[in-house]
Amino acid sequence: MTPVRTEFADGVAVFTIDRPEARNAVNQEVAQQLAAAMDEFERRDDITIGILTGAGGTFCAGMDLKAFTRGELPSVEGRGFGGIASAPPSKPLIAAVEGWALAGGCELALSADLIVAADDAKFGLPEVKRGLAAAAGGLLRLPKILPYQLAMEIALTGDPITAARAHEFGLVNTLTPSGGALDGARELAARIAANGPLAVRATKQVVSMAIRYTDPDLFAAQRGILDPVFVSDDAQEGARAFAEKRAPKWTGH
């Protein structure tokens, strides 16, 4: 069974990460398939907007840590984490979030242009709890949306934020009842897809450019700071401790 399902209809594309047994964690296969799906999304003139969601009541738990300990990276050259994070599509993308959007999963949601979330959903960047750092755009994008101090609290504590609080501060566009995020995203997408596709695409590009969401210089600048974290002993220890269900033993190396 493919870990990414795609649907194209009525001007709207729906991309579903379908690994519910792993809480839709992203491995290399997921990243490659999402990148391929985004390429098709970009090519199709009949599709105006996309929706990214996860199967089984969870959006995405981030990087597959078990795959990481085997040396598998959940990214695609030129596209970044999940095949999306460092090079989002030029067409608008909605994240439909149920349950948890954690770590790289939160960063995938942040790489979207709009977020529709169930009222019991939660967002978080817990990388620091695993000896890692949020290198897929989360540390760059979060303070552009949330107040500086709140963004810092989320990033430095690794603690999650509820969808209700995220909505209060503008991170989430629309709240829905539990189980209704995808329907809510489809409703929003239909309103956008009813507009001129060239105008929608151009408008998204200018708005995103205005706040430098896709500025390659920012990604280049953060690599020099964060790359050493990913090759550290603590990074491997954090992943092993998670897989072994124990507290990590940090060394600072």
Results as ranks from 00 to 15, higher is better:
R5T: 04
R5C: 03
A9V: 07
G11L: 01
D18E: 12
R19N: 13
P20C: 08
E21T: 13
A22E: 14
A25D: 01
E29S: 08
L34G: 00
A35P: 00
M38Q: 08
E42V: 08
R43D: 14
R44S: 10
R44H: 09
D45Q: 15
T48Y: 01
L52S: 08
G54Q: 06
G56E: 09
G57A: 03
G57Y: 04
T58V: 13
F59G: 01
F59R: 00
A61V: 11
D64V: 01
L65C: 04
L65T: 03
E72Y: 08
P74D: 01
E77N: 06
R79D: 01
G80Q: 03
F81Y: 14
S90P: 06
I94P: 03
I94Y: 06
A96Q: 09
G99S: 06
W100V: 14
A101C: 10
A101H: 09
E107D: 07
A109Q: 01
A112F: 04
A112R: 00
L114N: 01
L114D: 02
V116W: 01
A117R: 02
A117L: 05
A118Y: 00
D120G: 12
D120T: 14
A121M: 04
F123C: 06
F123D: 06
G124S: 10
G124C: 10
E127M: 07
K129F: 03
R130F: 15
R130M: 15
G137Q: 03
G138K: 04
G138V: 05
L139D: 12
L139R: 15
L140N: 12
P143Q: 07
Q149C: 08
L150D: 06
M152G: 09
A155E: 09
T157L: 04
P160T: 09
T162H: 10
A163G: 02
A163R: 00
R165P: 03
A166N: 11
F169E: 13
F169Y: 15
L171I: 10
T174Y: 12
S178Y: 02
S178D: 06
L182N: 02
A185Y: 05
A185G: 11
E187R: 15
L188G: 02
R191G: 15
I192S: 01
A193F: 09
A193C: 10
L198G: 07
R201S: 15
K204V: 13
K204Y: 09
Q205S: 12
V207S: 05
V207A: 11
M209E: 14
A210Y: 06
Y213T: 13
T214K: 08
D217Y: 13
D217C: 11
L218V: 05
P228L: 05
F230E: 00
V231G: 12
D233K: 15
D234G: 07
Q236W: 11
G238P: 02
A241Q: 06
F242C: 01
A243F: 04
A243Y: 05
R246Y: 10
P248W: 06
P248M: 08
K249Y: 07
